[in-house]
Each structure stands twice: as C-alpha cells, then as structure tokens.
Amino acid sequence: MNYIFIDASSTEVVGQVGTAREFFPFQWNTERNLASRLTRLCDEMLERADLRISDISRFGLGTGPGSLTGLRVAAAFLRTLALATGSPLTPVDLFTWSAHTLASSDVTGSVRLTIPALLNQAFVVDLELPLEMPFVSLSPRLDLPGPAADGRPTYGIRSENRDVARVDPSPAILHDLMQTAAPTSYEALLKALPLYVVPSQAEINLEKRRSRAV
C-alpha cells in the first residue's frame, strides 16, 4: 500500500510518501503559494520514493486545525484524487497525530494539546492518553495559549513557550496511522474535511451584530 500525505495547516507544509517498507517525510515553506506549487511537491515526493501516481492507493489529508486556505487547497486536491481513483482518503488531524506521538514516548493520562492561533489564542483539546482508537472525534475550542489551569501537562504542537512543552508530530507515527484501515465509502470521503473550529469568525461577528441589535 503506497500513500501520499499532505498537511498544509501552516506555511511550513508537511508531506510524506510511503510504501509498505519505507517512508519519506518532506517539509517545504510554500510562502502562502501552495496552490501553484502543489503538483510539483507531489511530483517531488513520488520521485523520491520512485513511484508513479498510478502506484498510489491511498491518500492522507492533514485536517489541521490551522491555515484555512492551505487546508482547503490540500483538501480539494486530495479529495478529488481519492474520488477519481476510487482510493481511500485518511483524514489525520494534528491533535490525534500528536497524541499518538506522545503516547509512543510513554506519556499517559490527562494532557492538554494546543496549537497557536491568531490574536493570542490557541486551538485547544484535552485528551486521555493513550487514545482508545487510532482516530477519535475531536471538537477543538479557542482558548488562551498557556498551560491548563487544572495542572494537567500541556503540550504545544510544533510550538513551545516557558510553561508549555513541545511536541512534534512524528513521521513514523503518521506512517503507522496511514497503514490503519481507512473507510473507503463515498460518504466517508465527503466527511474528510478540514477540522474547523466552530463558530467561525463570520458567525461570531454575526452573533455580535444580532446581540447589538437586540
């Protein structure tokens, strides 16, 4: 089973191509220009693994959270490839990926995972490690970026500060996740979307306008 994975949740786009025997992680600074470079990045990955696109039987989508534009560009690209080729698409969010990475380092119990967001906020999820399932349903929220008030260990995904330890999602863990059986149905493909933090800014603004009107 050969796969291509793309995580475009930040301008440092992460890619990975893998076969049953080996995997090759990539990272590029796309300078907010992912859409025009995406096929070239995929060509680069395939060439490194000595594969052709027709050899790919699974796609992996980094669902974030993070840069909405980047996430959508990658999602539109990979969802279409999965549909056209009848291949499964495995959605991998940064929290789940990072949680498995921590668990592989023998971290257990209650933890908080955070990702920096705009306006001195962070996307936050509280989890129990190890995860019971390879993929779990998550509802990240916006919160302050610092450590958890209840004292549980807090980890910043690809980020750190004085009070928050750093965790970098591991390519080896991603490789394991990509080997996990992914749902192949059309319905499952339609559900493979960026991990949005609800409500959106537009909805927040609308609610504020309504409140003012009342």
């Binding site: 859409a35 909405l68 534009t69 959508r72 560009v73 539109a76 279409t80 490839l81 056209a84």
Partner: peptide
C-alpha cells in the same frame, strides 16, 4: 473571491495532474 477560487482550481489541478 480568492478562497472559493482556490477550491475550484485545486479540484481541477488534481484531475489534470492525475490524468
């Protein structure tokens, strides 16, 4: 609108690249 345009463009590129 840039965001909406990118969705269509990325969809088209996937098919053009694959086939």
């Amino acid at each position: 609108l840039l965001g909406p345009l990118l969705v269509g463009l990325s969809t088209a590129k996937a098919l053009a690249w694959r086939y």
